[in-house]
Amino acid sequence: MLEFIVLVLSIAFFFYTLLGGADFGAGIIELFTGNKSIRPIYKAIAPVWEVNHMWLILAIVIIFNGFPPIFAQMSVSLHIPLFIILMGIVLRGTAFTFRHYDTHVDGTHVYYHWIFRISSLLTAVFLGVTLGAMMYGRIDNDPNSTFYLQFIAPWFNYFCFSVGIFVALIFAYIASIFILGEAIEAKQVRFYGILAKRFSISMIIVGSVVLTLAYLYEVPFLSLALSAPISWAAFTGATILLPLIWRGINKNQLQLIRVFVALQIGLIMLGWAAAQIPILIHMKDGNHLTLYNSVAPDATLYYLTIALVVGSLSIFPSIYYLFRVVKFKSE
């Protein structure tokens, strides 16, 4: 049961990274390229954006039902970044919808544009910061330590922010590939192709910064990753895919590269998980929160499993149906 629940949790995170990531990334691209990206972005993400965010809800519910201490710990130590993420989600979601369903376009849309773009970037960065803090190992439960040590230090540092920027770049990269698949005009294909390449180069640079900082700050993740062969293999695989994706962009194989990128993101996440799991939160005092020591009782897992099985049986076919209705028939 535990294995199944972890599997569904991973699937939820994977899809959230991919689809939700495309959504955040779209905002980031708009931030850097301006109004000309609005139309292609609508075409690519508007019909499915609400479903994209369901993956986050699913993940949160699995965590607070199946692993309550993890949810509680994150809520306390990472209160501030999580609150920023929430405000970002609220503002960007509403700004996007407000302008999308508005009856006509006028000067007011400037505000929606900027709220959508800035909060997309901010949310993506802080999602990464939160992830970084789970790896960083400075989360502290000592009620006698200072406010700074309890609520700021675990996430406010170079390492966590480098992870944040890395995540934002991944999202922007996914979005550019996603939009590329929808683009029809040759000019657009060239534009988003160059963008995708730039983002992937930046990912490599920032990725190396993350690793360097991990080394400098003695983040436990690094040594764990070095001793896990699966991590090695997965990260290598993800790197090898990069030239293939570039070639695909040059050769206009736009559907193929979508598959490659999904695979690549999957490999990066696998590499991360293989190093980190079963530890989910590294604590300062060494009493890490793992899948095993924070799992809910068997009865809870049993009913959670039933809910997830029934859910998957009904959700996956319907998602497929929705994608078919909105994506393929409109061509």
């Binding site: 699913l58 607070f64 809870t300 809910a307 997830l308």
Partner: peptide, 21 residues
């Protein structure tokens, strides 16, 4: 949530499905 999550969380997990649908 630390104590209640595992007890009253089940309706929320079904709710996830309902939202999706």
């Amino acid at each position: 949530m630390k104590h209640a999550g595992g007890i009253f969380g089940m309706p929320f997990s079904w709710e996830g499905t309902a939202f999706f649908i």
